[in-house]
Write a protein that binds this DNA or RNA. Sequence first.
DNA 1: CATGAATGAGATTTCATTCAT
DNA 2: AATGAATGAAATCTCATTCAT
Lengths: 219, 219, 219, 219
Amino acid sequence: MNGRSASDLEPVTRTQKRVIRTRKKLLQAALALFSEKGVDATTIEEITEAADLGKGTLYRHFTSKDELMAALIEDAVDRLVVGIRGKGEPRGNLQETLERLLDTHLGFFRENRDEFILLFQGRLFLKLERDEDGAIEEPFNLYLREIGKQIAPFVPQPIDPLKVRRLACAVAGFVSGFLSFAMIDMAPGEIEKSMVPLRAAMVSAARSFLGDAAQRSPL
Amino acid sequence: MNGRSASDLEPVTRTQKRVIRTRKKLLQAALALFSEKGVDATTIEEITEAADLGKGTLYRHFTSKDELMAALIEDAVDRLVVGIRGKGEPRGNLQETLERLLDTHLGFFRENRDEFILLFQGRLFLKLERDEDGAIEEPFNLYLREIGKQIAPFVPQPIDPLKVRRLACAVAGFVSGFLSFAMIDMAPGEIEKSMVPLRAAMVSAARSFLGDAAQRSPL
Amino acid sequence: MNGRSASDLEPVTRTQKRVIRTRKKLLQAALALFSEKGVDATTIEEITEAADLGKGTLYRHFTSKDELMAALIEDAVDRLVVGIRGKGEPRGNLQETLERLLDTHLGFFRENRDEFILLFQGRLFLKLERDEDGAIEEPFNLYLREIGKQIAPFVPQPIDPLKVRRLACAVAGFVSGFLSFAMIDMAPGEIEKSMVPLRAAMVSAARSFLGDAAQRSPL
Amino acid sequence: MNGRSASDLEPVTRTQKRVIRTRKKLLQAALALFSEKGVDATTIEEITEAADLGKGTLYRHFTSKDELMAALIEDAVDRLVVGIRGKGEPRGNLQETLERLLDTHLGFFRENRDEFILLFQGRLFLKLERDEDGAIEEPFNLYLREIGKQIAPFVPQPIDPLKVRRLACAVAGFVSGFLSFAMIDMAPGEIEKSMVPLRAAMVSAARSFLGDAAQRSPL
DNA sequence: CATGAATGAGATTTCATTCAT
DNA sequence: AATGAATGAAATCTCATTCAT
């Protein structure tokens, strides 16, 4: 009846666009502040102030500060998962897969320092075993499933979900450590150079952990 | 006026002992809760409740929640520094010193998981550059000075304080990463095994960073 | 430009009709919710939601929530007054007038339960003496005047306005009591049966209160 | 061990007494304001202001405004129930029992006008059928049980709980009506006089409703 | 010294109202 | 005329801190 045809799913009126923009402003402001001073230490007012919006506006988009944080985490994890999933690259072997996994994580968090701090502050990854907070579980499970899919071709099926969890934890730990390390502003060249042996050691440990038969490949 | 006479130097009266015991109970309760749910999310009441004391009692021992946290951090850092300082061991070379540094950190934080979380949550180490919070600065500088003293014999003097800072940061990152990694309950044997190459890689990077002349030693 | 020509006196255009319909939808929704959960506990959004309209629309028809409530009360009182005024019936005597008064009230509120609750919740009638809220005063005075007119022929003039007020209050109390009583779903027959002596007692008390000379008439 | 013996149940220290006094001050202030301007229109600050206490103090005694209101209702109902239960008076017959019931209610609410308004405003009695609000249910059921006990000897057992409910509702309606009626400040003598026939009519209706066999006693 | 009732600053949250579309 | 996103004043509620006992 109207001119729109294929775009009915995204009826981007002016208002719609403003809503999206507002929501994004809130998320951005919150992310910056959360990673800067911590979730608890950040007040709603600071967020809306930073977003140049009224205090009440936040509550039109999120029911609470917690939900706002959950949205940030979900968003970060989603993008991380997309990165991990990659572009349907050739499979290679477990070693290459693990290397790609580490590189993806490092790359993602290097580009997204705030998300890195947010996830580690909320300690998504340290909470690997606990599994309490409802709002965070879902994105995290999505993440675990993706890791599982990546290594599936190279390990005997079915994989113990616990093993995936632990691998994820190890990867997270590696990234955390390495980024803290690199956060000291070492020259980029140095970073790469120091990364190579660390990554190699890490991959080797992970392969061993996963019981890779092809382990005996030359170090 | 009172009965104490010669023992004034160590006036361990009944009351004195109780004071010490009370203080310890508070510190323990606070440490456990802070590392469990975060400093901000922990209320004074929860702490005194856990310590089985009245709320007001906390304020007889610490002037504020912040001071309580500072006391915990100071205590943790003090013990860590004692560990680093060691028992007057033979000096050896930079490589050995760095290895000992890493081992000490790993050992300390493996034994003191709560302190680990507390320091990283308050992000003592991530704050390496920032240097804001007054209460935390002092113990941290103590720590940096100790690191500096350890490596002093092997690097050209005077050392750039920034370099020490960065080394500390790298060590912290390594520990953080490795502990997260080991936090997954890998068999102790596995842990040691996987640690060896990671540590080697780390030491190598650090030596390079510090400009160790003896760098060309076999990898 | 538009089709309207001769009918400007009753310009019931499409738009006009919609306006009226919209206003009615809002009033109905508000009445139901106000009587269901109380005026204060009802939000503008709930009302417009129930009316299947946008939130802003309410403000095109009423300048505020208070005005909306006042409109409801005014409307209810107007209809009640119309009922009281009756259809120019023969005057009879005070007893008959009072009986008619009670019957009219009972009938009206039996048919309009929501209005009953609204008026008693806002405690229009309990506020008989207070006389604060500006928006409500006017319809209430209209009501009092009508009561006064009804009994005027049978009491010495001028009537003390306070007496009218009190009579109104008594009538309201009677209705309130009787409706609560009848709210328990007694069979209609029972209700009528139990009403008769209560009403008689009430009328008798009221006549006495108004100093009806003809009081001694057979009960 | 200490001097207290029988009074261990009420260890009324100075502090304890203050707590009780504070709680009472809050309840009194709240009751007055709730009945004056309605529960919703009364703010926490107004209550604590009126009680001459800090805002936070209220929350040491009640977890929320709702709980405060529930406490008031419970208290009121408790006292009403005590009144109804009476002092183990001779049983008499149903008529006398009902008369006593009405008199007790009237007396109680005449003495406790604020409670009257509170209960009718929160519409405890109008909610007879609904049975929603958890916090209010319990005191209300206590009340119903007491009514049931009072009439038990005179009606065939077991009584339909619904019948008790309806009787309670009728009583409440009667009281509500009569008090509104008496609220107009009729001379006390007038009130008694006008009450007699109303009460008689009411009792008669109730007896009929309860199916009293001895109904045919002279009106 | 130990206590916990009281406090009030400041945080979160609600919602009547405005206004650009 | 209708809409609903945005607003901020005002409410509720939390909790570190004080202080009388």
